[in-house]
């Protein structure tokens, strides 16, 4: 039986990969995907704690996280489309002036 710390370490590794994606990649869409990776890593630790505490609260919080992720993806991708229409690039270094 996999213990709590197995799940927590997996969650930490996935979270770090998300951080690495945001730090290393120079593509706004991949950076948004990395944020999704981080949210999922946190979800995994919520579910693991919920299971090992014998409580449903972890699962409920995961539903709210998924909802927030959906809202974040919708607004983030709308921003990406608006920026791409202006500057024809997805490189965040190109977005230096945001005065419209």
């Amino acid at each position: 039986m996999a213990a709590l710390n197995h799940y927590l370490i997996l969650s930490g590794v996935l979270f770090t990969m998300g951080v690495a994606g945001v730090l290393l990649r120079r593509n706004v869409i991949t950076m948004l995907l990395s944020i999704e990776v981080m949210l999922n890593a946190v979800n995994l630790s919520f579910i693991a704690f919920g299971h090992f505490l014998g409580s449903a609260d972890g699962q409920i919080i995961v539903f709210f996280v998924v909802t927030v992720a959906a809202a974040e993806a919708a607004v983030g991708l709308a921003l990406v489309i608006a920026l791409f229409r202006h500057l024809e690039t997805l490189n965040p270094d190109a977005f230096r002036q945001l005065r419209g």
């Binding site: 710390n5 370490i9 930490g12 770090t16 730090l23």
Partner: peptide, 20 residues
């Protein structure tokens, strides 16, 4: 960035391994 991410990974795994 890569070094920062690596340090964070090591730190997290070390800390979470203590949660046994």
């Amino acid at each position: 960035g890569a070094i920062l991410a690596g340090v964070m990974a090591v730190e997290l795994v070390w800390a979470l391994n203590r949660s046994r």
